[in-house]
Write a protein that binds this DNA or RNA. Structure first.
Lengths: 248, 248
DNA sequence: TCTTATATACTAGCATACAAGCTTGCCTTG
DNA sequence: CAAGGCAAGCTTGTATGCTAGTATATAAGA
């Protein structure tokens, strides 16, 4: 009776490079980022292991990695739960994205090649098509791919790793906010603003467009946070700012 | 006032919060960052477990976390080894630091309080004292503490997490380069440049000073890389790095 | 009824045993 | 002597039993 479903949800292929542990990691991560597992929801190694048809060990490995990413909170001898969305972490993640991507997009504008321009235009077209259909789930990876492409064009592909780390927190909110059909069209248009300036070699204009884009995204995040306060943790007073914290 | 001095080894105390696993993590990380364990040096879970007097399980947890930080490379069924220093990762880490810390230090200059100024001056004094003694090991945590303080003053304490992630790669090189006694004095003087401008509220000047400081540090890193080529990996010849790839 | 003590049912941390795969060196064979 | 194959010994991956600790429900007592 095996029926270990390989991948019911779309996850990065690089994540499931390893067997059971990679599968567990990818599955849990997708559950959390997609919002199917909600903040403060508790889970246990046994429970997940049974669900996936594996033992506790690979599940435990996945939990360790997800905890270090700030997506899970492990309380020894008590339980594991989906980490609440820390508004400070989200805001600071936004700050990091803006600081990094505005610089890289300016560099990309100075180093753009015709091949890059063609690829960017192709990406835009595909985004426009998906946006017209209102297919949010399909739009997200296209969005990521374009931002990553711009970072790579700047000659700093590894910087994307840093962006990815903070982006996880942002993505959790993004999935909560995927309801407005006009939203995709807005993002698409802003991407167009960026790409046009990059292709034109306008470094400052590209950076400004990227800044507007990211700040616009973040503004919507703040709106979401106010309409879903139960998923968030204010934590306005964190003197030492550790990632682990318990609250009665 | 109480100088923050609870760091005999360059590991964050928050890391060893947990028992055997935290101990293994802290020990391994210190070994790697200090250079006592050199790049490409192989190790095994059993070996480390015996050395620490624990079983493989907590050691394995530590290895998983260190691999996700890019400090170890695990090859299934073959072995685990200390990751070579990726020059691209170091350079991009430097880029991330500069992008983030130049922004935050400018914000810090706009938000500085008398208490902050006093604390910064105290930090500078202690750095000067340690630098005069040539105590490199003691200087490192003071250096980190000052940079972290500047980030916190900007009102973005969580940004330090992102800096820490990339800083690990930079620190490995830093420990290789701790030989020149005049080096500490140089860093101390550059810190002074930054602090003076922060306290004066000169945001642009502070950012420029930070940029000069970080670029100066990175220049020395490049020198080290050329004199220790055996520890480094040139990105072009790496079929599979520790993390993800770039091409879609 | 409310408080308190206690038993129970969970949790994660850790140790250990087993499985699968790669590397290496020896041994057989041409 | 050389080349190929085979087996032993390593490695990490996975499964499982045990331990210590916590939260909760239950029952006893004021």
């Amino acid at each position: 009776m095996s029926a270990i479903r390989p991948l019911p949800t779309p996850v990065s292929l690089a994540d499931r490079r390893r067997g059971a542990a990679g599968t567990a990691y990818a599955w849990l991560r997708a559950e959390i980022l997609s919002g199917r597992m909600r903040p403060a929801q508790s889970l246990s190694e046994n429970e997940v292991a049974q669900h996936l048809g594996v033992s506790r060990t690979p599940v435990r490995e996945a939990i360790i990695r997800l905890e270090s990413e700030g997506l899970l909170t492990v309380r020894p001898q008590v339980g594991t739960e989906v980490a609440p969305i820390d508004v400070d972490a989200v805001a600071d993640g936004q700050f990091v994205r803006e600081a990094l991507e505005c610089r890289t997009v300016a560099m990309a504008a100075k180093a753009v090649t015709p091949a890059d321009a063609a690829e960017l235009r192709g990406m835009l077209d595909e985004q426009g098509r998906v946006a017209a259909l209102g297919d949010h789930a399909a739009f997200v990876p296209l969005d990521d791919a374009m931002h990553q492409k711009l970072v790579a064009m700047a000659g700093r592909p590894q910087v994307w790793h840093a962006v990815e780390d903070v982006k996880a927190q942002l993505d959790r909110v993004r999935f909560l906010s995927l309801e407005d059909p006009a939203w995709l069209a807005t993002i698409h248009r802003q991407h167009e603003d960026i790409v046009v300036r990059v292709i034109a070699g306008d470094a400052e204009g590209a950076a400004a467009a990227m800044s507007r884009h990211l700040r616009n995204v973040f503004a919507s995040i703040e709106t979401i946070a106010q309409s879903h306060p139960e998923y968030f943790r204010s934590a306005s007073t964190s003197p030492e700012g550790g990632r682990t914290r318990q609250d009665p």
